[in-house]
Design a binder for these strands. Sequence first.
DNA 1: AGCGGCGGTGGTAACGGTTACACTTTTGTA
DNA 2: TACAAAAGTGTAACCGTTACCACCGCCGCT
Lengths: 340, 340
Amino acid sequence: MRKAATIRDVAREAGVSVAVVSRVLNDGTGPVAQQTRARVVDVIERLDYRPRAAARELQQRSATAVGLVLADLANPFFARLADRVVGEARARGIHVVLLTTLEDSHLEAESIETLIGRSVGSVIATPTGGNVDRWARLVELGVNVVFVDREIDELPEVDVVAIHNDLSAEVATRHLLDLGHERIAFISGPLSTSTGRDRVAGFKRAMGNAGKVADDRLIHAIPFRGDAGGDAVSALLALPNRPTGLIVGNTAQVRSALRRVKQMAVDVPGELSLVVFDDNPWTELVSPPLTVVRQPIDMLAMHSVDLAVGRLRGSLPEPPRRIRVEAEFVQRSSSAPRSS
Amino acid sequence: MRKAATIRDVAREAGVSVAVVSRVLNDGTGPVAQQTRARVVDVIERLDYRPRAAARELQQRSATAVGLVLADLANPFFARLADRVVGEARARGIHVVLLTTLEDSHLEAESIETLIGRSVGSVIATPTGGNVDRWARLVELGVNVVFVDREIDELPEVDVVAIHNDLSAEVATRHLLDLGHERIAFISGPLSTSTGRDRVAGFKRAMGNAGKVADDRLIHAIPFRGDAGGDAVSALLALPNRPTGLIVGNTAQVRSALRRVKQMAVDVPGELSLVVFDDNPWTELVSPPLTVVRQPIDMLAMHSVDLAVGRLRGSLPEPPRRIRVEAEFVQRSSSAPRSS
DNA sequence: AGCGGCGGTGGTAACGGTTACACTTTTGTA
DNA sequence: TACAAAAGTGTAACCGTTACCACCGCCGCT
């Protein structure tokens, strides 16, 4: 356990001052003679010197790290988002501090707090919907916040990257309508999230446009996590007038809903056509393969990191941006024409 | 964008010295009068003061962060491991810096490098198998390394948390043998990983104990990522003497293998009995539900964090520990007696 | 009365970088 | 040749926190 070399060790060994070493390290901050640079680089190599991030961050607010606050890594959607974000960040020489909220605003609050102490320059987050004041404070402290997948209306000054949730829900709904379904149910996320609200709005609009009124008993706004999907399905199928089409809002909900559907031996798509949000490796492995709304995770990640890092480096125009990317509708076999 | 309060602001406002504030902050480092403490706490609250992690880390190697170097977040096993690690770490007041290697030793090397600059006190990692010298250097620099899920034999000084991979493979194999299968194939990870090696060893042992010799053409050591599983399946099923049992080593491999099996319209378990490593939410949703070896992710995460944080706080005995947790064998419908 | 110990407090040198500024040398131009 | 500008380098002051040490009373002992 020898202690690591410092910039002063390098300076001494190379016979120059620390200032020169620093300039070599951060290329472009000042002139350094070609020959001197070579010598310094050599010593750095030899001593295996690595500048300490902590010291650097202390000095200026440069910050080589971004915070990533996700709802739930057990959800493949967020996991793959994290995967892509970490990859994109690495490509830009940025580290990622990961935190999860489990959709709990208290844990979210805690995460924001720690992120303040930690001097991250930017935060990419999927907000739970609460903690408006805390997010605002983070912004006021000079941290660049980028919301991904969801947003908070009361915070217009933060960047947002997401799909058109209302449109996507509308497309999914119209798909079922076009197949002849009349009674269509929707299992969505909590209305405290923009995702939940927007999708329900899109659903209602599509139904309205088709001259149908969306029966409120057919709309279930349930938590994104947990197994509430099962009970929602049971409730829906217990209705006197069963829906023949069902749209489900996220992977965890799909899992529990699908399990219940199988338990109840309901025929898909014979008795019930299914369209679900978020594509996964396994959506095409189950029987029947699921018709899905696929979010372009790569795009979400890329734009988020672009914004987060861009603002960090100050290379972006001032006004906050709201980037919308296109979701893709992938038809498989879980949705079919209504078998009268 | 007001700038955050510093310890000096608090000291001034409370009419005490910075030393006192520091003592209040880090309880137990020295005496503080009850009344003074109350006043300081009050000011901290009022000024909304948060100590800056960077300054702290610079001062001493306290380090409130651990690095988490995972192979691939797109793999649900690692994603859920990350989820649990982040949760456990938070409970201990520790942040997680996340990096991924994509099973590429170059990216792993890069990750180790960044982790050196970043002053993390511990690193939890799933090593690719290479970079032995770099890991050694990290250890020598005083960073506590904990390998999880896999290990590197040449590095006996690091902690390890994993299942008994050889035993698990043996159990899986014996299960198929007991069902009457004679020709059993094994799709495993690269032999450069301990996981790959150990499982193959367990497989061979089980076969040997049953008086059968493991045909090398029935063993495919393929990458953990990507779609090589499909081709492996094709190769196996093209053999003159088809295997009737197959064990698959990780989720990505299962996905590609299963897709090919379905494409080829092979009946599971009629023609081919399947046992796979790692349980996922969807393993019981596919048809037929898969017989799996379930790794206790919670235990892996908990012990990893325990070790990482314990060493950080110096509250652990010196000698490196190798913790083995029990994998669980879950029988479902993808494995059945050989229907000769 | 003298003295050691201790509770409570303040002063200040690190920690390892960056950077403003001063200084010296080289280069360019009339 | 003279002199300004630019290139190259060094010095030292930060950044925010902790830890060591000195200091001051006050208590309880011998």
